[in-house]
């Protein structure tokens, strides 16, 4: 069973208006721009920490940039730690099969798989797969 359509309908003009607003996600330059804005925001937040006096309860919480460092380091360590963890615990998908759902596809009877069609078209033209 393949979920891929024979020929993906990929005419960007046919996307719904809402989807069109996110098309930038496909362009690397736009993504770069978003990352740039993120960096600027981070810098601003970091600088603000020196200007605004935060109310601190826990020891060390008052140090400027505390949350910034914790956020960055914690995230990094979690991701890297998880990566190491995976080396220990990752197994083949069929490891527990047939007693686990990992290796099986969701039964088609409970699904309504449909391929995208431009919104202009009527819904009864929707091409169904599986089922």
């Amino acid at each position: 069973m393949t979920d891929k359509p024979a020929k993906p309908i990929d005419d960007k003009q046919e996307y719904t208006p809402l989807a069109k607003r996110f098309l930038w996600a496909d362009s690397s330059s736009a993504v770069e721009r978003v990352i740039f804005y993120l960096s600027v925001t981070c810098t601003v937040l970091f600088v603000l920490d020196f200007i605004i006096h935060r109310h601190a309860y826990a020891p060390g919480e008052g140090i400027p940039g505390f949350y910034a460092v914790v956020g960055f380091v914690a995230f990094t360590l979690i991701v890297l730690g998880a990566k190491q963890l995976r080396r220990v615990i990752l197994r083949n998908e069929h490891y527990y099969s047939p007693f686990s759902v990992d290796a099986e596809n969701y039964p088609d009877a409970g699904l309504d798989k449909q391929q995208y069609q431009s919104s202009v078209d009527d819904t009864h033209d929707v091409k169904r797969e599986g089922g």
Binding site: L38, L45, L48, D49, H55, E61, F66, A68, V73, V79
Partner: peptide, 22 residues
């Protein structure tokens, strides 16, 4: 409160930054 919003935004934004970095 300002300090609360600020600390939370810092935490999240820098975590996002870490994601980009990774």
């Amino acid at each position: 409160t300002v300090s609360h919003v600020l600390s939370q935004m810092q935490l999240l934004c820098f975590a996002l930054l870490a994601f980009v970095f990774l």
